[in-house]
Deep mutational scan, measured.
Amino acid sequence: RNRTTFNSSQLQALERVFERTHYPDAFVREDLARRVNLTEARVQVWFQNRRAKFRR
């Protein structure tokens, strides 16, 4: 699988949700994935990586 590149509008939407919660539930992830046209799995991994970055 190739690395996913996120465009600025996708990142903006992802970061907005991250500000609200670092652990979005499945419903939030599904909705977000639909809105930014990504798979739920990509959204889930983005949050895992974003939390790791946040802890650094």
Rank of each mutant, 00 (worst) to 15 (best):
R1A: 09
R1S: 14
R1K: 15
N2C: 02
N2W: 06
N2T: 13
N2D: 13
N2R: 06
R3W: 12
R3Y: 14
R3V: 10
R3C: 10
R3L: 11
R3A: 05
T4Y: 02
T4E: 15
T4G: 12
T4W: 08
T4V: 12
T4F: 08
T5N: 15
T5D: 13
T5V: 13
T5F: 07
T5S: 12
F6C: 04
F6K: 04
F6P: 03
N7A: 09
N7Y: 04
N7F: 03
S8C: 07
S8P: 13
S8I: 09
S8E: 15
S8D: 14
S8T: 13
S8G: 10
S9N: 10
S9K: 14
S9M: 10
S9P: 09
Q10F: 04
Q10M: 05
Q10D: 06
L11W: 05
L11H: 07
L11K: 05
Q12H: 09
Q12P: 01
Q12L: 11
Q12Y: 10
A13H: 05
A13F: 07
A13G: 04
A13K: 07
A13S: 06
A13N: 06
L14N: 00
L14F: 03
L14Y: 03
E15R: 01
E15H: 04
R16M: 10
R16I: 08
R16P: 02
R16A: 14
R16G: 11
R16N: 10
R16H: 13
V17S: 04
V17T: 11
V17N: 06
V17R: 00
V17Y: 01
V17L: 14
V17C: 11
V17I: 01
F18A: 05
F18E: 04
F18Y: 07
F18T: 03
F18Q: 07
F18H: 06
F18V: 03
F18W: 14
E19K: 08
E19W: 14
R20G: 04
R20Q: 15
R20I: 12
R20V: 10
R20W: 11
T21G: 05
T21W: 08
T21A: 03
T21S: 05
T21F: 07
Y23R: 01
Y23I: 03
Y23Q: 07
Y23K: 02
Y23V: 02
P24W: 02
P24H: 01
P24S: 03
P24Q: 00
P24G: 03
D25Y: 00
D25T: 08
D25L: 06
D25I: 06
D25H: 02
D25N: 10
A26Y: 14
A26D: 07
A26C: 09
A26S: 13
A26P: 12
F27V: 14
F27N: 14
F27C: 14
F27S: 14
F27K: 15
V28I: 11
V28F: 01
V28D: 11
V28C: 13
V28E: 14
R29N: 00
R29W: 00
R29G: 01
R29M: 14
R29Q: 05
E30C: 11
E30Q: 12
E30D: 12
D31L: 04
D31T: 10
D31P: 00
D31G: 06
D31R: 09
D31F: 01
L32S: 02
L32A: 02
L32G: 00
L32V: 09
L32F: 01
A33W: 05
A33P: 02
A33F: 04
A33V: 06
A33K: 01
A33T: 01
R34Q: 08
R34G: 07
R34V: 04
R34Y: 03
R34P: 01
R34N: 07
R35N: 12
R35G: 07
V36H: 13
V36Q: 08
V36Y: 15
V36S: 05
N37A: 03
N37I: 10
N37Y: 03
N37K: 05
N37F: 04
L38N: 08
L38V: 14
L38F: 02
L38G: 05
L38T: 14
L38I: 10
T39N: 08
T39P: 13
T39K: 02
T39G: 03
T39M: 02
T39L: 05
T39R: 03
E40R: 05
E40G: 05
E40I: 14
E40A: 10
E40F: 06
E40M: 10
E40Y: 09
E40D: 06
A41S: 10
A41W: 08
A41D: 08
A41P: 08
A41N: 07
R42V: 15
R42Y: 08
R42G: 12
R42P: 02
V43K: 00
V43E: 01
V43Y: 00
Q44M: 12
Q44T: 08
Q44L: 13
Q44W: 04
Q44P: 00
Q44A: 12
V45F: 12
V45L: 10
V45M: 09
V45E: 15
V45Q: 15
V45A: 15
V45Y: 14
V45K: 12
V45I: 10
V45R: 10
W46Q: 05
W46M: 06
W46G: 02
W46A: 00
W46H: 05
W46K: 00
F47V: 00
F47S: 02
F47D: 00
F47C: 01
Q48H: 10
Q48P: 00
Q48D: 05
N49K: 13
N49V: 08
N49C: 09
R50W: 03
R50E: 14
R51N: 06
R51E: 00
R51A: 04
A52F: 05
A52C: 01
K53Y: 06
K53Q: 14
K53G: 11
K53M: 15
K53A: 14
F54E: 15
F54Q: 12
F54C: 09
F54A: 11
R55T: 10
R55W: 08
R55G: 13
R55M: 13
R56E: 15
R56P: 11
R56K: 15
